[in-house]
Write a protein that binds this DNA or RNA. Sequence first.
DNA 1: CTGAAAGCGCTTACAG
DNA 2: CTGAAAGCGCTTACAG
Lengths: 338, 338
Amino acid sequence: MGVSLKDVALLAGVSIKTVSNVVNNYPHVTPAMRDRVQRAIDELGYRPNLTARHLRKGRTGIIALAVPELGNPYFAELAGAVIDAAARHDYTVLLDHTAGLREKEVLVCQGFRAHVIDGLILSPIELEAADLLGRRSDDGPLVLLGEREYEAPYDHIAIDNVAAARTAVRHLAALGRRRIAFIGARRELARRPAHLRLRGWREELTAAGLPCDEELVAATDGYGRWDGAAAMTALLDRGAEPDAVFAYNDLMALGAMRALVERGLRVPGDVSVVGFDDIEEGRFSATALTTVSPDKQAIARLAVERVVARLTGTPQMHAERIQPGYTLVTRESTARRD
Amino acid sequence: MGVSLKDVALLAGVSIKTVSNVVNNYPHVTPAMRDRVQRAIDELGYRPNLTARHLRKGRTGIIALAVPELGNPYFAELAGAVIDAAARHDYTVLLDHTAGLREKEVLVCQGFRAHVIDGLILSPIELEAADLLGRRSDDGPLVLLGEREYEAPYDHIAIDNVAAARTAVRHLAALGRRRIAFIGARRELARRPAHLRLRGWREELTAAGLPCDEELVAATDGYGRWDGAAAMTALLDRGAEPDAVFAYNDLMALGAMRALVERGLRVPGDVSVVGFDDIEEGRFSATALTTVSPDKQAIARLAVERVVARLTGTPQMHAERIQPGYTLVTRESTARRD
DNA sequence: CTGAAAGCGCTTACAG
DNA sequence: CTGAAAGCGCTTACAG
């Protein structure tokens, strides 16, 4: 249906190869020839068929990004950053969301849409190390994002979650808070997501000589605002009497703040709150949220660079664990006075 | 590098065609033959090369979605819905964002990544009708989303923005509000985005016999929280004394509420606020936000169905304007008492 | 510096 | 019901 190299070659009276050379800016083409071919290209409105190029080169220029949930602004913002970073390397991004379901995560990392994507950036939630074994070498590079850690030969990009959590808790302790709760341990999967941030909470409380009663740990089912609110309500109902809350993410922290206000408690007067992610919403909530701010731009950039490096570079690179930076951004929710 | 049909055919001792038949579940294959071939497929771990299939069939199974900004939860939620709707038709989504820049929008709709995507769903902001003329027939179907209207032969899916805006304003008027402001007219592009919602505001105020002073219209540069806050502040500063605000979207409404609170005004006591989009954040803000809720699922579903229909159906379909439903969701920000 | 051939891996008519 | 051939549109060696 479309115009092909052959048509252009015919019109210009040259071989297919010459047209290809012009299209690809191959340097050794005489200006006159280039001009003649270009005229034919313009006249026919020729555009190269990328699918054919892909088949021939074995590359598509498409990277897949799979995040749990676009409804979580952290992942939406991250996706935007990945798209921009990929564009800088002339890659396009195919976006998928897994709802944090192991089944979907497995599907994605075991070569779904193989051959169509050159590489994959995955932010797993429930994926198990064993699931990674099923991945084949011809599925292209895989870069893992986020808190989950695996013994597997794949690059992993994540901030130091334990240290970041400790920074948050240290900040609360420095305000004089003594009963610092943690919101966000998964109910059925205690050991997994939230694991590192929970450990940071424990370590820092211990270091500060503060109690880390299990009573102060509130489990949740999901990662959203409602989960945070429900967890906060549960904490209050069971009489845990926290004077501070460190939440697994901003969404839960926001939910917790709402629950606190509904109970007639003031933030930060009665309870200080710290979140994690630094989504724009937290900057703008009624009480602006103090939060751990991972360098999303760096995460996106490093992930894309890593995929591209493995695609174009030496295949013998070791799997690396890369830790981008983070900062604690203090706002109203942990102000000293109300 | 990979395993091809040929390898499988060789091992199974059949022709390539037979393997292809098995892979594609072609019905007329004897069970014995199917079994033999399947065994060879399993043994070699064969997976079809989709790129080759794409080249041959002229289809890739990829739809592109281009939205202004993933940082706006409305578009993030919509993108999620489109991905799900596409998956139901066995399509994958390539996501792009335009930042609402005409240049980027033009690039996207004039065949960027042609041949790689079967169709495009675009939510334009600054695109002009003339830009659409440059699109070629072999670029595949294009479905437009959102408020902008064009005289162009493309399907357009959007709720009735004028009617929806009127519903919002009517709600405010019914509460006894008399000075109802509109936030969100673009500063330099007065006629364009926000155009229909602004018209709805005018029409309804006129119908209700209320003033629609230009003083009550606050222009913004962008579409975010800060723009809403700045516009609200400007309204107050110029002494417009609004007792209600209808904002172009939820993000701006949220920003406006924050600005009101900072000025010591109560929502809804002093000023009632209505937004547009129904993002989850609005349900959860300190004062839950009343909003016009477009049926995002329907928008996503219709957009994908339309692309798929044009890809598979009769090419002679007329361009249609499709209006999904919407509802006004009333919450605290327009409650009768504070 | 340009050309003719082969082939990436598949599907689509066309035979048998 | 299965096979042999052609071709989707390109790029990659290889000649000249």
